[in-house]
Amino acid sequence: MDRQPTLETERLLIRPMAQDDREALFAVASDPMVWEQHPIHDRWRREVFDRFFDECLASGGGLAVIRKDTGRVVGASRYDVYDPEEGGVVEIGWTYLERACWGKGINTEMKRAMLAHALSQVAVVEFRVGDTNYRSRNALEAIGAERTRSYEVDRYQGKRVVHLVYEITRESFASGPLA
């Protein structure tokens, strides 16, 4: 599966993330409110963001999100773990957008394009979200993702971190709210 496609929607250009995107993405990520519900809630700090950005580049699936009307980078997302077995599964996650994009349908537009691309090649897309990240959980449920399971990951700053797994199948996408 091509995990770094270039996708275009009415308002967005979604393209492979590059080292040159670091400063523009830090400008988005440096807003503490972007991370307030996230288990790793301090990605607004430079040193934490830089590690996160480097991991995203190294993953081979990082995508920068650009508003076509301004040409500005307004956020990022990524395709991560890909398993070709049993029809294929890929994970979409690590999404963050500047607050000016919140409530404007930008996330939905981006996810529709990313899902259409992925589900043309795999049977299932998974999303993993912190159990206290209600903003992301609500956004996933609004696009038709169904919660399937939960698991505990390593602790962060001494606190237990639980992730919920949501999924959208090729069939549920075709008949769901993003169809």
Rank of each mutant, 00 (worst) to 15 (best):
L25H: 08
L25M: 10
L25F: 08
L25S: 06
A27C: 03
A27Q: 12
A27W: 01
V28D: 07
A29W: 06
A29R: 02
D31L: 04
D31T: 09
P32K: 13
P32H: 14
M33L: 15
M33N: 15
M33T: 14
W35C: 05
E36I: 13
E36Y: 11
Q37P: 04
Q37W: 13
H38W: 14
P39K: 04
P39W: 08
P39F: 09
H41A: 12
D42A: 06
D42Q: 10
R43F: 11
R45V: 11
R46V: 08
R46F: 01
E47N: 12
E47A: 11
V48S: 09
R51F: 09
R51Q: 13
F53T: 09
F53M: 09
F53A: 07
D54F: 06
E55Q: 14
C56K: 13
L57Q: 13
L57F: 14
A58G: 13
A58F: 11
A58D: 15
S59L: 12
G60Y: 13
G61P: 04
G61V: 03
G61L: 03
L63H: 03
L63G: 02
A64T: 13
V65W: 02
I66L: 03
I66T: 05
R67M: 12
R67P: 00
R67I: 03
K68H: 06
D69F: 00
G71D: 07
G71R: 00
R72W: 06
R72A: 15
R72P: 00
V74L: 04
A76L: 04
A76D: 01
R78Y: 05
R78N: 09
Y79P: 05
D80I: 01
D80P: 00
Y82S: 10
Y82E: 13
D83E: 11
D83K: 05
P84Q: 03
P84A: 10
E86A: 07
E86N: 09
G87T: 01
G88S: 03
V89F: 06
V89N: 05
E91N: 12
I92H: 06
I92R: 01
W94K: 02
W94N: 11
Y96W: 15
Y96R: 00
Y96E: 06
L97H: 04
E98R: 10
E98F: 00
R99M: 10
C101H: 01
C101S: 11
C101W: 01
W102H: 08
W102E: 07
G103F: 07
G103K: 03
K104S: 11
K104T: 15
G105E: 13
I106R: 01
N107D: 10
N107S: 08
T108G: 13
E109V: 11
K111D: 14
R112I: 07
R112A: 14
M114W: 05
L115H: 05
L115E: 07
H117W: 14
H117T: 07
H117N: 07
H117G: 09
H117M: 10
A118H: 04
A118E: 07
L119Y: 05
S120P: 01
S120F: 00
Q121Y: 05
V122P: 04
A123G: 14
A123T: 01
A123L: 07
V125Q: 03
V125D: 10
V125N: 05
E126V: 12
E126R: 07
E126K: 05
F127W: 14
F127S: 00
